[in-house]
Simulated assay, not measured.
Amino acid sequence: MNVFEQAAKVRLMGFDIDGVMTDGRLYFSTEGDFCKAFFSRDGLGLKLLAKSGVKLAIITGRDSPIVTRRAANLGIGLVLQGIEDKREAMASLLEREHLTMAQCGYMGDDLIDLPLLKVCGFSATVPDGHPLVREHVAYVTQAPAGRGAVREVCELILRAQGNWDRVVAPYLA
């Protein structure tokens, strides 16, 4: 099965945060606060994918109020933070949503993501993802993490499912 056939079956798409939605760098202040930078075009890609009917999830190893805020801003209600076993977390989420592993996709970049990436129906990573991750995914983006990689995956799924023209039509009117 090719990457478009895999992407066409996605009903729930999950994303890691650090190294996927962000460039992976963490900025710490002297007070111990930290921040992350998100790319606005990735955000619109996520909104377009959700508009097409694909459910969105965030499954990340770090627990951060910044992620909670970004997810709320994007309308992503399925947010699992502080997760060590992402495969088990996705399996539980899919059970609640009445979906199968073949109907989900995940985008991650590091070894912690690999167990999930190897079993989901569609998998993606970024160009600087860990070499073992790049070996085991269906799709490696051209765009870098935190700079359009998420948008690229969202558009790939939209095109594979035949929804691209419909979701962009309002912008062309």
Rank of each mutant, 00 (worst) to 15 (best):
S92M: 13
E95V: 07
G148E: 10
G61S: 12
K55M: 14
L158N: 01
S64F: 01
D113C: 13
M90D: 03
I66T: 12
A102N: 12
K36S: 04
Y171S: 12
I76C: 09
R62M: 12
Y171H: 08
L12G: 07
F39W: 15
A143K: 10
R159E: 15
F38W: 11
V168R: 12
Q6C: 13
D23Y: 07
L46Y: 12
A37Y: 15
L46S: 04
L156D: 01
T22N: 07
E97S: 09
P131Q: 11
C35D: 11
N73Q: 15
E31K: 15
S52T: 05
V150T: 14
T68I: 13
N163Y: 06
A160W: 12
A138M: 01
N2I: 09
G77F: 09
Y171W: 15
R25I: 04
L26C: 05
L158Y: 05
A169P: 04
A71I: 11
L44M: 15
R69Q: 14
L114P: 03
L94T: 09
L132Y: 12
V79T: 07
A37F: 15
S64L: 07
R151P: 05
D33T: 02
K9I: 01
L99K: 11
C120I: 13
G77Q: 09
G14A: 15
I112P: 05
R96K: 14
A138D: 14
A102D: 14
N73F: 14
Y106D: 03
L132K: 09
N73M: 15
W164R: 06
I83D: 00
R25G: 13
A124W: 07
D128T: 01
A72R: 14
R134W: 02
A89P: 05
R69C: 09
A173N: 11
H136S: 04
M107C: 11
V150S: 02
G121Y: 05
E135A: 14
F28S: 00
V67S: 06
D42F: 13
D16H: 01
N163Q: 14
P170T: 08
E95Q: 14
G32H: 05
A160K: 10
A50P: 01
A124C: 11
R134N: 02
A124I: 06
L111E: 11
D16E: 10
V20A: 03
D109G: 07
A89F: 12
A102G: 06
V126E: 00
F122W: 13
P65G: 10
E5C: 06
R69E: 14
Y27V: 06
F38S: 04
P131I: 08
